[in-house]
């Protein structure tokens, strides 16, 4: 996830202090990993250098330096371009799980056990996510669903592989 683009996007609704930006980010996207203030500071200085934001003003007062950032025209264009560019789907072609299963078959270990154990582990994660989803707000639900769907996809693969273990054993043995 591009933190720079995200912060830029947050600025589009109006100029903000760095501290405000961190709070907005944490609230909407941070979830289990809040942003360090240092991260905000370093990102903003990079954006400033590239001309995507400008300093709108500095407030004096208690605490550390309080700069107010505003987005520039170039910044808006940059956000726009980022949003319009589709994310590249992950290929998932390198699978540790697949490797484990094949190795188990090659070494005459019980591959079904591996699959069952993995499923159990997946389900454990899914239970945690499901639980969080039930207690959380819409944002939580969407984020958890995203993860759940991915885990479900893995699980489906596990089921399918379990059903085809015999064939796979033959293929591997050849």
């Amino acid at each position: 996830m591009s933190i720079g683009h995200t912060l830029l996007g947050l600025l589009e609704s109006g100029p903000r202090h760095g501290y405000d930006l961190k709070r907005a980010f944490d609230e909407k996207f941070g979830h289990d990993r809040p942003l360090h203030y240092g991260q905000v500071y370093s990102t903003m200085s990079r954006l400033l250098k590239n001309g995507l934001v400008e300093v709108d003003g500095i407030e004096a007062g208690g605490g550390p330096e309080r700069k107010r950032y505003a987005i520039t025209e170039a910044g808006i264009t940059d956000v726009e371009r980022w949003l319009a560019t589709p994310e590249k789907p992950e290929p998932y072609l390198q699978s540790t799980l697949y490797t484990k299963v094949v190795l188990a078959l090659l070494t005459h270990r019980d591959a079904a056990d591996i699959l069952d154990g993995q499923r159990s582990e997946h389900l454990r994660s899914m239970r945690i996510l499901t639980d969080r989803k039930r207690k959380g707000d819409l944002a939580d639900q969407l984020i958890c669903d995203h993860a759940l769907f991915h885990l479900e996809a893995d699980l489906r693969w596990l089921e399918l592989t379990a059903a085809r273990l015999d064939k796979l054993r033959e293929a591997v043995a050849r």
């Binding site: 079904a112 056990d113 069952d116 499923r119 582990e121 899914m126 499901t130 769907f149 479900e152 089921e159």
Partner: peptide
């Protein structure tokens, strides 16, 4: 159920395969 996302509402699962069940809590 055969759907993992439905099973995720459970506290634990058991797997039935070829008429035999496996209690995953005790396996792992």
């Amino acid at each position: 159920t055969h759907e993992a996302r439905v099973a995720a509402y459970s506290d634990r699962e058991i797997v039935v395969r070829d008429g035999r069940s496996r209690d995953m809590e005790r396996v792992v």
